[in-house]
Design a protein around this nucleic acid. Structure first.
Lengths: 203, 203
DNA sequence: CGACAACGCTACACAGTCGTAGCGTACAAG
DNA sequence: CTTGTACGCTACGACTGTGTAGCGTTGTCG
């Protein structure tokens, strides 16, 4: 976009600083002043590129969204454990998780930030849903599952423990969750009347 | 505690205002000034009772924790649907959910607020866990389930949709989740090796 | 009724952030 | 080399929140 290396350098420094402040102090600590100090950039310089702290932070998020890559193995359980395992690894300590946590609260009062929150979580969610849909297509799981629902049932418990109860999230937990959900979806014999409701028309 | 009705009135007004500001603007909007204005109370009066905005908010939370009551029907599915159904009702619009959301982010940087967050979510969580343990005792579900895990698997997806994806949370969803989880736990035949891992030694 | 306490109000000093302006310096690009 | 631009620095006024002090008024309770 911008050719001048001075501008690119400034923007990179400010983005980095904005995320750092947000992670360490939350939205309360974010101000043009604090970001400028953290970035080692003059406050006036920041005003030349952004109009408000919110604009800086939002701009910084765009330099944070990483495409989520995964090479499918062909087995649902294996792939789901891989994806969720990576989520379990990132949830406790990654910058991504910290930013997402801050956004959860901020999104309540700012539609723009709500959109960024969605964007941050989307790539992983889509990856999970794709795995489920592919497995359904291959016949590994019932063909009529609601992939959004299943994704929520898999990732939900991990976020629940991270955000609400602060319980640890480890690989053992991930495997258990995947197994219970897959078993619950497969169940067609005794409690079939129950499990059947898991199949809902896709919107 | 305090005998003087004037003090009780003031505290009630301030508590109410603090929660209102927190819900409407989040922690960013909370200040002694904003609370005083909202409560219709002089700022100096507030200083006579509290030393900081945080102290006010924390104090206000204590007047917010409601014991969670439930008369068990004896059937796990029925009772779980009731408890989670109430959660589904409260999540989208209750003051409780708004406060909890604000606390999720604030708890990252303030241990005291982390404790209040835990307290706010605890009564419902305990109710859910009790239902599971009772059902296990009665033999309705396998006896060796980890109730904390199951509670996370039931409530997690609801919070996930409310906090992360902003998808609607309705009764139909609740029933589906309960059915899948119960079916997944019951499953002893084909995929037993998988479901078995759901049983973990209680801590 | 009388003593005491809580409250509202005003005022003040202080700190932090905001947003803008001007000027000199350093770097980029033709 | 020369022009243009980005940057750092300083300074300023305005606004908002903080914390304290004093004083008059109102309500409480014995």
């Amino acid at each position: 976009m911008t050719a001048d290396p001075r501008v690119r350098r400034t923007k990179a420094l400010v983005h980095e600083a904005a995320i750092a402040v947000l992670v360490e102090e939350g939205f309360t600590g974010v101000s043009i002043e604090s970001i400028a100090q953290r970035a080692g950039v003059a406050r006036t310089t920041i005003y030349r590129h952004w109009s408000s702290p919110a604009a800086i932070v939002i701009d910084a998020f765009d330099s944070l969204s990483e495409p989520f890559e995964l090479e499918p193995s062909g087995d649902v359980r294996t792939d789901l454990v891989t994806v969720l395992g990576r989520l379990a690894t990132d949830l406790p300590e990654s910058r991504w998780a910290s930013v997402l946590t801050a956004l959860v609260a901020a999104a309540e009062h700012d539609p723009e930030l709500a959109e960024r929150k969605r964007a941050l979580a989307e790539s992983r969610r889509r990856a999970t849903m794709s795995l489920i849909e592919d497995a359904a297509r291959r016949g590994e799981i019932r063909a009529d599952v609601d992939s959004e629902l299943v994704a929520a049932m898999l990732a939900g418990p991990l976020f629940y423990r991270r955000l609400l109860t602060n319980e640890p999230v480890d690989r053992q937990l991930v495997e258990t969750i995947v197994d219970v959900v897959l078993a619950g979806l497969d169940h067609r014999s005794a409690g079939a009347a129950r499990a059947r409701s898991a199949a809902r028309p896709r919107r």
